[in-house]
Nucleic acid binder design. Structure first.
Lengths: 157, 157
DNA sequence: AGACAATAATTGCACTCGCATGTACTTGCA
DNA sequence: TGCAAGTACATGCGAGTGCAATTATTGTCT
């Protein structure tokens, strides 16, 4: 077995653990948000992302960038936004300078729901991490999640 | 703002980064495996998991445990196994002592396809990690993936 | 100005997923 | 033994997703 093979195996194990942890956390969040606030994990994530953009002045992310932020295809993002708009949590409006672009704002109702759901989300996240830290395969990643903090803000690759 | 709030924000950021990295890697793997070997990322993952169980003697994981390993519901696992069985990559057989239980073996064809796809998978993973390491938000997790190696074997929580 | 390529978002379609339910088998207890 | 409760997998169904094709708008080149 070559050194490269050994490295690949290590990488695959690491990826497997990351994947496992992601799945566990997402399931946990999904349950909590769904039963408590009729929100899927992605819907919460979308509201969170949109509410953070230029706080106070309104949103300035195009659908394209939003799709990238929530790691979803453009089509799925279109429909996700449509669903939330139909529920009155978001509003769409065209970009003034380029009428192809579309911006989205979180409505007051959306902000209210987000504020209401945030404690649920954070508690569920804390819980999922605590459970995961018992698994030795997952513990290193849990530690990394806990280490990273608000210091590292945005910055596209 | 209390200390607890600060911690929650840090946690959410960490989770967001983990989620982002997971999505990026999965998309990358999906593309590579799909176009190269007609396999989804999860199908590859399933073959990989099943081929690793007690190598040589055949598989001994029940559907239930398999579902847990690939982080999928029981129903989705049933259909995933069915798809791969229909393609001749897996075979099902009943557990002798408890005829409710069902075991799965990877067929020679399945092992062959897995062996063929593994380099693609590993290369795509390496590539995705390299791309991700350029993003400061993702870099710590990339480092964790690279740090963990085969040392930490199984162990249920 | 007019035509053609490029970009942003939406829609059609097939596929996978989770939840709730159904079926087969086993275990516990009278 | 016989019947209820529990466990393991499979199936019906509605919902969400990605890919490919479509529509609307902008930029560029002659």
């Amino acid at each position: 077995m070559t050194a490269a093979d050994t490295a690949s195996i290590g990488l695959a194990h690491g990826w497997y653990a990351l994947s496992l942890l992601h799945g566990r956390i997402e399931s946990h969040l999904e349950r909590a948000l769904q039963s408590g606030h009729d929100l899927s994990a992605r819907e919460y994530s979308l509201l969170d992302v949109l509410s953070h953009q230029h706080s106070g002045e309104g949103g300035h992310l195009r659908m394209n960038q939003v799709a990238d932020a929530v790691v979803l295809s453009q089509s799925a993002t279109t429909r996700l936004v449509t669903r939330l708009e139909d529920r009155g949590l978001l509003s769409r409006y065209l970009c003034a300078t380029d009428r192809r672009g579309i911006y989205t704002d979180v409505t007051p109702a959306g902000l209210a729901l987000l504020a209401e759901a945030r404690p649920t989300h954070d508690a569920a996240l804390r819980e999922a991490l605590d459970q995961a830290s018992a698994d030795p395969r997952l513990a290193p990643f849990v530690a990394t999640v806990e280490t990273v903090d608000a210091a590292g803000e945005f910055g596209q690759p």
